Amino acid sequence: MLRRRVALTVALLTVAALLAALMPWSGSGAADKPKDTTAGTLEEVHQPTAVLLPSSGTVAEYVPNAAEVEALAKLIYGEAGIVPSTTEQAAVVWCVLNRVDNPRFPDTVLEVIEAPYQFSGYDPEYPVKEEFALLAADVLARYRAERDGEENVGRVLPAEYCFFTGDGRRNHFTTEWKSTDCFGWTLESPYTD
């Protein structure tokens, strides 16, 4: 089990290193800050937490698609960068994956993220923060394990939740657009918040 975790950690770090080598990291542009200025800077609000990896054997060989990791990291940055909970940030990724599996939406991660008028917080010019890239890769690995038949992979958002709205500090996940019946965070989280 330890060998599998080490292999997955190496795979995730490889993806992060590739992203770091290929992506321009900006340091002071307007795109470096989330749009909400009432909650302080990203560093003030959210301290990085360790990403726990699934304990499965099948995900050790899986290396997430770098373009998907990059787009999801930018989505987390724009939609949940100031949210102080890793679990809630991971839920943004699960929402995208829920859409991939739902026949009402496109079939790939990139098509879902880039669909017109869907994620107002996504901008392809946003930076790829390492903590968000690692979180995106972790969720993709958990999703893959779930699709391969594993149970209890660390899903933080049920499959029927395909929408969310934000209030500047938190995102509220729903099964239908503009619904007021929000998810109550009833699943056990694999992350330390």
Rank of each mutant, 00 (worst) to 15 (best):
A115M: 11
R3E: 10
D167T: 02
F105P: 07
P124A: 12
P124D: 09
G184L: 13
R147W: 03
W94S: 12
V156H: 00
V51Q: 12
A39W: 15
A115S: 15
Y77H: 15
M23I: 05
L12M: 04
V59L: 10
P124V: 03
D138F: 05
P24C: 00
V92F: 07
D181V: 15
H46V: 07
T175H: 08
Y143T: 14
W185E: 07
L42I: 13
L19P: 02
V156K: 03
P106D: 12
V15A: 11
S85I: 14
P48V: 07
P116R: 11
Y161S: 03
D148H: 11
V63L: 06
K178R: 10
A16C: 08
I82P: 06
R3N: 02
G40C: 14
E111Q: 15
W94K: 07
E131M: 07
T58D: 03
C95E: 12
G40K: 12
V156D: 05
N171C: 02
R144P: 00
D107M: 01
D193R: 01
A50I: 14
R170V: 03
Y126F: 12
G149W: 05
R4G: 06
V59M: 05
L22R: 11
V51R: 10
R5A: 12
R147V: 13
V96P: 00
R147L: 12
T14P: 01
T38D: 15
V153N: 09
S55T: 13
V6S: 15
F164P: 05
G184S: 06
G184I: 05
Y191E: 02
D32G: 08
T41Q: 01
P103R: 09
P54Q: 05
R155N: 03
I113W: 01
F183P: 03
N65T: 05
T38N: 13
D138A: 15
E151H: 14
V156W: 08
E114H: 04
A20F: 02
E146D: 11
Q89V: 15
T165W: 03
G149N: 10
C95S: 09
L97A: 15
A80C: 09
N98I: 05
T38Q: 13
C182N: 01
A60C: 02
A71V: 13
W94M: 03
V156E: 09
E160Y: 03
R5M: 09
A7F: 12
F163I: 06
V128F: 08
T49L: 08
R3I: 14
R169D: 04
Y126L: 02
L97K: 01
E151Q: 13
T37I: 15
A31S: 08
R147C: 09
V63C: 03
R155T: 02
T38W: 11
D138V: 14
V156L: 09
C162D: 07
A17C: 10
L140Y: 02
T49S: 07
A91W: 11
Y161Q: 08
E88L: 09
D193V: 02
E70V: 09
V92I: 15
G29M: 00
T174D: 00
A21H: 06
P64V: 06
D181M: 01
V100R: 01
L18T: 12
A73E: 10
E70C: 11
Y191A: 09
I82V: 15
R104H: 07
S56W: 01
T180D: 13
